[in-house]
Simulated assay, not measured.
Amino acid sequence: MLTRRQLAAARLVAQGLIAPHATALDAVTAHVAMQGQDLPGVIASTALRTPRPDPVEVLAELDAGRIVRSYPMRGTVFLMPSRDAVWVTQLCSAPSLRAAEARRRQLGLDEGALARAEETALEALADGPRSRPELFGVWEAAGLAPKGGRGYHMLFTLIARSTVCHGPWNGTDQDIALVSSWLPAGSDLAGRFDGERVPAVAELLLRYLSSHGPATIRDFAWWTKLGLAEIRAALPLVAGHLESDGAAEPSYWRAGLLDEVAALGRAVSRPLLLPGFDEFILGYQDRLFAMTRDQHDRLVPGNNGVFKKTVVQGAQVVGIWSRGGRPGRRSLEIEAFRPISAAGERALQRRFEEFPFVGQ
């Protein structure tokens, strides 16, 4: 059985935070989906998983249409490879779409309004991606009144139904693009898996456990909101590619991972600065492998779903950090959970100077 620190170290390595992926696209492809409601944060999370963290590479992949953001599961936006966005969304989005129905009624929206929103979006985006304000303006002109949360809900629904997606970077945000023209043809569930769910679940399960493991199938069920029966049916299709601890509720990880961790030695303990919604923290049902309960309460005050940026050292969260000062005079501000050595502080300052910030 792995100790808490050993588990955290293995997950850091699996996620590419210690031994990085070759490219930004490789990093996102390995993860399949990286939680992305903080767009600058997920751009940084991706860049940090490459040899020379640089947001420019990530933004170039967005502009080229190889990476997009979608709402595949949990009602949350994720950064994804374009070739995986549609089939994963079709596989996992049903629970969040059902959950959104009550909110839709509160907003005075019905299927007729959503149909009109889709029709006007298809027409407005036919010539290429447009910004969110531009799309909302089209909806306003069509009498769909996007203010007061209605526009967000209509956009969420069209993305979760794989009609549109968040596409190229426009300097401050992502434009909205049509799935039919922006994403690869044949990348839906029918095109990739002949419409069969269990092989698709198996593919998603293998990539989650390879990039997040050691983790359990309950971690995967929480991450995707897929049913355990369907996941258990898929597990035998990929178990031969994984290693396991053989526990009553086993954890699984990619073959050779623990040897990689051992070969990296002290590198797994090096100080890191991570964005607030990084998959190292948000990719698991239980986050206490990397911190204590009290520390978790400080990371997410009031358990309000807003995660602060983490300082990681020795494979454990040792504090939270922020970016102080003004453009051109930025500084690292740390709220430490425990004392950090002078050498550790110097290393964190270097991480701050190298951090892949988007904008000033």
Results as ranks from 00 to 15, higher is better:
R4A: 14
Q6C: 08
A9W: 02
R11C: 11
V13P: 15
Q15C: 02
I18Q: 09
P20D: 02
P20C: 01
P20M: 05
P20N: 09
D26H: 03
A27W: 00
V28P: 11
H31C: 03
Q35Y: 05
S45P: 11
S45C: 04
L48D: 11
R49M: 01
E61V: 00
D63Y: 02
V68P: 03
S70K: 01
R74G: 09
V77P: 02
F78M: 07
L79Y: 01
S82L: 00
S82A: 15
A85Q: 13
A85I: 01
V86E: 10
T89R: 08
T89P: 13
Q90T: 04
S93D: 08
S96L: 12
A100N: 08
E101I: 10
E101Q: 13
G108H: 02
D110P: 11
A117M: 00
A121C: 09
A124E: 06
A126M: 08
P129W: 07
P133K: 00
A145K: 14
P146H: 12
G149C: 04
R150A: 13
H153C: 02
L155A: 01
T157S: 12
A160L: 14
S162E: 14
H166F: 07
G167W: 00
G167T: 03
W169C: 06
T172L: 10
Q174S: 04
A177N: 00
A185S: 12
S187R: 06
F193H: 03
R197C: 07
P199H: 06
E203L: 03
R207Y: 12
L209G: 07
H212P: 01
G213Y: 14
P214W: 05
D219H: 01
W222C: 14
W222L: 12
W222R: 06
T224D: 10
K225Y: 08
I231W: 09
R232G: 09
R232Y: 14
A248T: 15
Y252Q: 10
E260S: 11
A262C: 04
A263Q: 14
G265L: 07
A267I: 09
V268T: 12
L273T: 04
Y284Q: 13
D286L: 07
T292D: 11
R293L: 12
H296L: 15
D297P: 13
R298A: 14
N304R: 13
V306R: 12
F307K: 08
V311K: 15
V311R: 08
V312H: 07
Q316A: 08
I320G: 03
R326A: 09
R330V: 04
E333T: 09
A336Q: 08
A336L: 05
I340H: 05
A343K: 12
A343T: 10
G344T: 01
E345S: 06
L348S: 02
Q349W: 01
Q349V: 00
F352M: 07
E353Y: 02
G359Q: 01
G359A: 03
